[in-house]
């Protein structure tokens, strides 16, 4: 791997769930302010890999890693790293929208409040900025005290993105963020990703090939714990170099 300054990098990364070898010798470097898509069949390790970047796997019994995961060149598994600080830097959005059973406003500022910020003006300003970035502000600005659970699925997902953005991360991890949404809401999330990449480094797991094609700059194809191919999205989707990649993206697997 070159000495380029990557925002996120994995070096000889192996990961295990007990005896199960989930990730095998992964080497990859992801550029700052670019969108990288992870694709591959279920169980190939892409979500596991995504979750190593904010140490979400730490909660899982028997999970362990070997090798390095670097954020801005620093090993995030280093014992001096505070996980709560790491997660401020690396935000995450999940497949199913998971707003808290609170108001829209409270959802967005939740992370800030946990950090001890109480200044109302700061909270309001951040809430508006984050909701605008998540392209939700115009739809909810008059109902900020309404329950988040009353929003539609697509709006809830954008709220979750606003919540992730409120704590000013530099990286956004998205695990199938649009797979539970209708095509219109899904298109909104895609537009949003396209806008957000000017400010954030985004990694997205998706099962939708066309979506990966539309939103990402780079695509990584995973298969049985291995990183089979990583290249510019337009190259990977038009002339992949590995037969396994070709078989997967053209739907001829197995």
């Amino acid at each position: 791997m070159s000495k380029k300054n990557y925002k996120l990098q994995a070096r000889d990364l192996n990961a295990y769930y007990g005896n199960f070898h989930a990730l095998k010798g992964i080497n990859i470097g992801m550029e700052e302010k670019a969108v990288t898509a992870f694709i591959g069949p279920s169980g190939c390790g892409k979500s596991t890999f995504l979750r190593t970047f904010n140490r979400m796997n730490d909660f899982i019994d028997g999970f362990r890693t070997e090798g390095d995961i670097l954020l801005d060149g620093k090993d995030i598994y280093d014992k001096n790293i505070r996980v709560d600080e790491l997660r401020k830097e690396v935000g995450m959005v999940f497949q199913k929208p998971n707003p808290f059973p609170k108001s829209i406003f409270e959802n967005v500022v939740y992370g800030l409040k946990i950090q001890g910020i109480k200044n109302k003006a700061v909270l309001e300003e951040t809430a508006e900025k984050s909701l605008r970035q998540a392209a939700l502000w115009e739809e909810v600005k008059d109902n900020l005290n309404k329950s988040a659970l009353a929003l539609s699925g697509g709006q809830q997902q954008r709220l979750c993105i606003a919540r992730a953005l409120a704590i000013s991360p530099s990286v956004l991890l998205m695990d199938e963020p649009a797979s539970a949404l209708d095509p219109i809401s899904s298109a909104k999330i895609e537009e949003l990703i396209y806008e957000l990449k000017h400010e954030y480094t985004i990694v997205i797991v998706t099962h939708n090939m066309q979506q990966a094609g539309r939103v990402s700059d780079y695509t990584a194809f995973f298969y049985i714990g291995e990183l089979v191919e990583f290249s510019k999205t337009r190259t990977l989707f038009t002339s992949p170099s590995d037969t396994r990649t070709q078989n997967y993206i053209t739907g001829r697997f197995g």
Partner: peptide
């Protein structure tokens, strides 16, 4: 069919 790779070509 939204063809990709060899199918698209």
């Amino acid at each position: 069919f939204n063809p990709l790779a060899v199918d698209l070509r």
